[in-house]
């Protein structure tokens, strides 16, 4: 047996002819923050549901905490905290009641849960809302409550499916801060996201998925190193002129990508490249030098951008 908390080999899930997860391999170690990055429909959520022992795999091997989810579903779920893509709180009940009843589903005693509630409310910054019906909460608050609720059983693995989708920037940052604290406490995190900044912020290691397959696997920094240059120069010439400029620019950059509205030029030194272009008498309408991100990795691997 391996020492990993989650061990998958050839994990596959099909729905009729459609292959949602196509024979993927990965291992997640204790205390690691592991991410699945990919566009909508890449198979991330399906993979999460299989790991969460709520969806049965079609083939392949999978052990979670040393157990097979097909055989030991409830035993595995007892040690997972699950934050689904869509909140599924009981909106008629109060914030505290939601945590309470959820704790009961794990067979926890009322005295244990009642001791735990103030601590979780503090973590989720919802102390003042403890007796408020969930109906009245904002999207960000609901999200934080869903996370707090999932922690009531002190899970070994916390699974977050698109944790910040649909939240405003401020709410996202609050949530990231909370998740970062959990990571510091040594909780094993499993995160799916289609936001590269989220993956960069939270994940020690991630797999890039597309169409049910793993395209690459590594730490965010290493992925960028392996699949992109240090910097990117973004230039715009206006949508009709972008295409004719590509051939002129191609010899100057290490790699070039044409997006509908702009051209991406990959180079170790973006400013230097911009100077070279200017020296040739080419003046783009706008230009921007930035560091490479996971978005560039994804573009390189799939030829498509993450958020389409």
């Amino acid at each position: 047996m391996t020492k990993s908390l989650i061990h998958a080999r050839g994990l596959t899930k099909t729905y009729g002819d459609f292959v949602a997860v196509d024979g993927i391999d990965f291992d997640v170690a204790k205390g690691e923050s592991f991410g699945f990055l990919g566009p909508n429909g890449a198979g991330k959520s399906t993979t999460m549901r299989i790991i969460g022992a709520t969806s049965v795999r079609t083939s392949g091997t999978l052990t979670i905490l040393g157990k097979d989810p097909e055989v030991n579903g409830p035993q595995i779920r007892a040690h997972l905290g699950v934050v689904p893509q869509q909140d599924n709180l009981d909106v008629e009940l109060t914030v505290s009641e939601n945590i309470f009843i959820y704790g009961r589903y794990f067979g926890l005693s009322s005295s244990f849960i009642n001791k735990k509630i103030p601590e979780l409310l503090e973590f989720a910054q919802l102390e003042e809302k403890k007796d408020t019906k969930v109906q009245a909460l904002s999207g960000g608050m609901k999200r934080r409550l869903t996370i707090a609720r999932s922690l009531v059983s002190e899970p070994d693995i916390l699974m977050l499916d698109e944790p910040t989708t649909g939240l405003d920037p401020q709410a996202r940052h609050i949530l990231w801060d909370r998740l970062f604290r959990l990571k510091e406490q040594g909780v094993t995190l499993l995160i799916t996201t289609h936001y590269m900044d989220e993956a960069e912020q939270l994940c020690d290691r991630l797999i890039v998925m597309d169409k049910g397959k793993i395209m690459a696997e590594n730490s965010p920094a290493q992925l960028i190193k392996d699949y992109s240059t240090k910097e990117v120069l973004e230039v715009r010439f206006g949508s009709d002129k972008n295409h004719e400029m590509v051939e002129i620019l191609r010899p100057l950059a290490e790699r070039i990508e044409v997006l509908p509205d702009r051209i991406l030029l990959y180079a170790e030194d973006g400013e230097h490249l911009l100077e070279q272009i200017a020296a040739k008498g080419i003046h783009p309408n706008t230009s921007l030098v930035r560091r490479s991100s996971l978005e560039d990795v994804f573009l390189r691997l799939t030829g498509r951008s993450l958020v389409e």
């Binding site: 409830p74 035993q75 007892a78 040690h79 009981d90 008629e92 009940l93 009641e97 009843i101 009961r104 589903y105 794990f106 067979g107 926890l108 005693s109 244990f112 735990k116 019906k133 009531v152 059983s153 002190e154």
Partner: peptide
């Protein structure tokens, strides 16, 4: 440490689901 009790869940889980429903009804 939390005291997750699987055996308790398999025995009383149904009642916990009912309890959640009854708490809901109590609001009405």
């Amino acid at each position: 440490m939390s005291t997750i009790n699987i055996r308790k869940v398999s025995r009383f889980g149904t009642l916990h689901v009912a309890e959640a429903r009854i708490r809901n009804m109590a609001k009405w």
